[in-house]
Amino acid sequence: MSGFLESLRCSECVDWGEKRNTIASVAAGVLFFTGWWIIIDAAVKYPQVEDFNHSYHACGVIATIAFLMINAVSNGQVRGDSYSEGCLGQTGARIWLFIGFMMAFGSLIASMWILFGGYVVKEKPVVYPGIAVFFQNAFIFFGGLVFKFGRTEDLWQ
């Protein structure tokens, strides 16, 4: 019984090879833009402020900014093995990435807060906008993670 998962290792039966970065980029694009279309759906279905408070859109905007911040620095810059120092060097890249991830986690947590604090606990008649906000932020968050960690920088050289 022990170790029966070892034969199921996925990275060996699928030859990622040179296609890995492409697949990761496409998957991240699907996740990110699906998230935004979910919130567009909720916004056009419930245009009234009572159903869907417009300030809840800020959550997805912060998640998008975090997405951009996370993916603006390469892993090599954070590790310090890039050729150019950039304007702030390794420390600046680390601080930038730290703030980016904080905004990403913060928006994810805030979307859960909106779902439960704004819709479930108040027992509103329509819960769908809250679920849409949560799914939007979850999709953007995981899209960012896929875009950041799904790609390998060995293929760039």
Partner: peptide, 26 residues
Amino acid sequence: ASSACRELAYFFTTGIVVSAFGFPII
């Protein structure tokens, strides 16, 4: 084999394709 610029292009192309599917559904 790949570059950051090309991967960003794939990302945006995917976004446009997803939008083309999302728009009629909305």
